[in-house]
């Protein structure tokens, strides 16, 4: 499943990147109401953003980030047509990545 949506827009030299990921982001402290058992922690730990292959941002997240996380940041010096890659790894070892062109 493609679970990352990326928008990267260049406006007078500053590129605003917005991305939305699909992930349950379980903290591990929530209980299943029916069984009373804890729902195991399942959250994105690391998000990296690369511009034309160079890492420009690394984010470390805990369970305190909302479900289906949204992230936005700004880049100086990116040009239209540059490729932006977002990759995440969660605490259960799953990973996902997506690529988009800067508009």
């Amino acid at each position: 499943m493609a679970s990352i949506k990326i928008r990267a827009k260049n406006k007078s030299g500053v590129t605003t990147v917005k991305c939305l990921m699909t992930h349950p982001m379980e903290t591990g402290s929530r209980k299943n109401k029916k069984t009373g058992k804890l729902i195991p922690a399942h959250f994105i730990q690391e998000v990296t953003a690369g511009l034309n292959g160079t890492t420009v941002l690394t984010a470390h997240w805990g369970g305190g980030v909302s479900k289906n996380p949204y992230m936005s940041f700004k880049l100086n010096g990116a040009a239209s047509g540059d490729s932006l890659k977002i990759n995440w790894v969660d605490n259960q070892g799953n990973s996902e990545s997506a690529e988009a062109k800067v508009k």
Binding site: V14, T27, L51, T54, T55, V56, L57, T58, A59, H60, W61, G62, G63, G64, V65, S66, P69, Y70, M71, S72, F73, K74, L75, N76, G77, A78
Partner: peptide, 19 residues
């Protein structure tokens, strides 16, 4: 909740949603 390491070219701006 979150910690962002900004590399070269990244401006001092981040936005996200937290619990």
């Amino acid at each position: 909740a979150a910690s962002f390491d900004l590399g070269a070219g990244a401006a001092g701006f981040v936005s996200t949603r937290i619990k």
